[in-house]
Amino acid sequence: MALEDRDTLLRLYRTMTTIRHFEERGVPETGQRGMSSSVHSSVGQEAVPTGVCAHLTDDDYIGSTHRGHGHCIAKGVDPTLMMAELFGRIDGPNKGKGGSMHIADMSKGMLGTNGIVAGSVPLAVGAGLTSKIRKLGRVAVAFFGDGGANQGVLHECMNLASVWKLPVIFCCENNGYAESTPVEYALSTANVADRAASYDMPGIHVDGMDVLAVYEAAGEAVFRARTGGGPSLLEARTYRYYGHTVFDNPLTYRTKEEEDYWRARDPLLTFRNHMAAQGSVITAAELDQIDAEARQLIDDAVAFADASPLPQPHEIYEDVYVDYPIEMMRRGANMTV
């Protein structure tokens, strides 16, 4: 990227640091409110959603994973409302009925974080089909992890998207572990991207700790999709700093040396080093200022979320269907509302 493209560079950094602050504060705060089991931190992986979604507009689509706060923020979902969702409050985009693993914002083309591994992949492919049939020029990104890379539905979808030449980017965030199972144990190929050959689509392997590398590779894949060139498989090698959830100690299945290696390649730090080394006009002080603003945004988000009302009891019956008698949901259950 040209160094003079200040706005883009600053935007990339702002997105990454917003994700970082959201995770570092929001995950433990949610745990303190008794809902820690459903929340997964993506700290360490910020460069991937940031670099990919920087090429998308609100009209484009993404499908996300159980570790999806970063995807939401990068796609433009309001972190303040996301925090309310994590706390189960009515002001969340899902009215508090989804939580961390189901955050969706259809106004931003965000088709949901998803609690099923590779669960959102066919939804993104379907969005790509809609775009193709209606000639909307939109693209869809299906995010999944190295665990999802071994799900059958992903492979069916890659074949289908290739056969139908759909505007889809299959983006694997390979963070090295499916819960505690190392990728080198569970994956038959050296890289997830190698599997693209089976579906006659480009397979790109990129350093997922370097937002500029992700941005460049994703730009090509998005351009290909948008111009009728069909799907791509983009694998970004990254690392999650914490455990699968807040409950597990990752040192039961990985080493401190390995963690130190990856933390030394931290995506925010890497970006700062790039700026310094390349003599960028972006100064450390400017980035410090963006960090401070992100911290303030998240502090305010926590306060907003705590002040947001909890859902009323009748909400339990709302939005199951567009049209279905509520009496049929209550019947025989001896409910009190």
Partner: peptide
Amino acid sequence: SEAAFVGTAIGAASTG
């Protein structure tokens, strides 16, 4: 590929 096309149809249905 029933998983792919049933899921894709659901994705298409949720996007218009």
